[in-house]
Every structure is written in structure tokens, then in C-alpha cells.
Design a protein around this nucleic acid. Structure first.
Length: 135
DNA sequence: GCCAACGTTGGC
DNA sequence: GCCAACGTTGGC
């Protein structure tokens, strides 16, 4: 099992919208590195949902319910989507600022590669963040 | 609004 | 294949 973070601007696609839809086709990724991460996702992998720009915090947990297939929003065969479902809205959000102050997260992909919209995360980092979300 | 960090594009 | 110019993302 692998662990991931996806980022979304709440203005465009928020956690609440995700929950309302119950299932999301994660489309629109147009970056090779992010695409490669999508392609590495396996069914039932767990995915942290992060609000960028507004909020700047991890807000909930999702899981992969369908592995990658061609992005239906483009004819360009290079791009793929996965499908995600909400698992849990966190009782406490975990702000980026909180992660930045903690040396246990100094290698966190979210901090080191802040521009990438789909990021892998280490199991121990995943566990720590889920722990903070339930403090 | 600014800027850092990248990624992409195109001229050579 | 190199590199300058430009565009985008996202934190501050």
C-alpha cells in the first residue's frame, strides 16, 4: 500500500464538494511528474486531501477506487485520471504551517515540492499527519 | 502583489 | 543539446 497527497484549490474543487459528489474523477493533471504519481496509485491506496492557496491545510482522507485510465477531458493520450472516494473528514485540519514547524516533516514532499499537485508521502509521515488530525 | 521554484517552449 | 524567455503554481 502506498500513500499520497493530492492538492486542490477549494475555490475550484473543495473537500465538501468532493464529499457531496461521493466520488471524484481526478482529472486535469498536466504535469508529467504528477501524472507518473497518478499512474503509480493502486486501488485502496490512501490519499490525503490538501487545500492549497486558501486554507493551506490537510482536510481529509480519501482512497483510490479506480486506477489510472486516459483522461476523458482531453484527446491527448499522455494524460490520465484516477477515481477517488472520501474516507474521512478530519476532526482537526492539519495546517501546512504546523507541518513546517516540525522537524519530522522536513523531508515532506508537500514542503519540498510545493508546486506538484500529486505527491507521494512516506508511511511514517502519513501516520503522523493522521495522528495530528485526531489529536 | 511579489517572488521562488520549476516546467515548457523555441531559437540557435 | 543548450539556454534564455516565458508561464504557472502556490506560499507569503
Amino acid at each position: 500500500m502506498n500513500y499520497w497527497i493530492v492538492k486542490s484549490e477549494p475555490f475550484k474543487y473543495s473537500w465538501d464538494h468532493f464529499v457531496k459528489e461521493k466520488r471524484s474523477v481526478w482529472d486535469g493533471v498536466r504535469n508529467y511528474q504528477a501524472r507518473n504519481n497518478l499512474m503509480a496509485m493502486k486501488e485502496n491506496d490512501l490519499v490525503l486531501f490538501y487545500h492549497s492557496n486558501e486554507g493551506k491545510e490537510v482536510v481529509g482522507l480519501a482512497k483510490v477506487v479506480r486506477e489510472h485510465y486516459p483522461d476523458p477531458t482531453t484527446d491527448d493520450s499522455r494524460w490520465v485520471v484516477v477515481e477517488l472516494e472520501p474516507v474521512e473528514k478530519f476532526p482537526k485540519t492539519v495546517p501546512l504551517a504546523r507541518l513546517k514547524t516540525d522537524e519530522r516533516f522536513q523531508n515532506l514532499s508537500l514542503i519540498r515540492q510545493s508546486r506538484l499537485s500529486v505527491l507521494p508521502i512516506r508511511p511514517e509521515e502519513f501516520d503522523l499527519i493522521v495522528g495530528l488530525a485526531h489529536d
